[in-house]
Simulated scan of single mutants.
Amino acid sequence: MGDFHKIRPFKILAVVMATVAVVLTVISLAGPDWVSVKFYEGKLQKSWGLWWECWRVHVSFEMCVGADWLAGCAAMVFLALIADAIATIMGLWGLFVKRRLPYVLAGVLCIIAAMFHIISLIIYPVKFTAEVTGNDDNKAETAQFVFDWTYGIAWGAVIFLVGATVFFFIRVRDEDNAQPMKVMADKPTVYYQP
């Protein structure tokens, strides 16, 4: 019998999950709705993302957050996007060269991307909450704030990155073990001997 082509469904699934994570990361990076803030003044509601430091609530009041941690969160999400895109390319390359090294590198890059995401997803709510509730002016003006859909999309990217990491690291058995019904040309199996 001739050689047969091994299909690696776990690796294909890992590449698909890494690609979905790239799309979700782009949406979370570009989306303006990480936090939705409601103000007492005129029932005004504003969405806050990774790129806005200040909002003018009314003529006499402007709500601002620190630029340093906000830029740090945006940079970490951007680095996660780069690491995830390279992991996707490495996974695709692994599908064509049929070697384990590209999958391992892609898995490591997915871990790095997930860590960047998780760090930014922890820093953002902690710092935002501390700044909004710690400033007496903001507390007087802010009715409530909730984390919005783009923040949830970023957590979705983390879930897909973790799944891609697991599937990149799964080891596929050898060809002979994976195909027990393959006909052996050298020695046929004998069940009965007279």
Score class of each variant (00 low, 15 high):
25 T>H: 05
115 M>F: 11
29 L>Y: 11
183 V>H: 03
194 P>F: 06
87 A>M: 05
150 T>H: 15
104 V>W: 01
49 G>A: 10
194 P>W: 04
94 G>M: 01
125 P>Q: 13
168 F>P: 06
130 A>Q: 10
108 V>F: 01
131 E>S: 12
54 C>Y: 08
44 L>F: 10
9 P>H: 00
4 F>A: 05
148 D>W: 07
55 W>K: 10
77 V>A: 10
158 V>C: 12
101 L>W: 00
42 G>N: 15
127 K>G: 01
50 L>Q: 13
164 A>M: 07
53 E>Y: 08
161 L>V: 07
110 C>S: 11
19 T>V: 15
136 D>K: 15
160 F>E: 04
66 G>C: 02
150 T>I: 12
56 R>F: 07
28 S>T: 11
25 T>I: 14
139 K>V: 09
1 M>E: 10
168 F>A: 05
95 L>D: 06
181 M>I: 05
132 V>F: 09
77 V>Q: 14
74 A>Y: 03
100 R>D: 09
82 I>V: 15
111 I>L: 09
193 Q>W: 02
102 P>E: 11
136 D>N: 12
126 V>T: 11
169 F>K: 05
102 P>C: 11
90 M>N: 01
166 V>C: 03
168 F>C: 13
112 I>C: 06
76 M>P: 02
156 G>W: 04
168 F>G: 06
44 L>T: 10
90 M>F: 08
99 R>D: 07
60 S>C: 04
10 F>W: 09
149 W>L: 13
80 A>V: 02
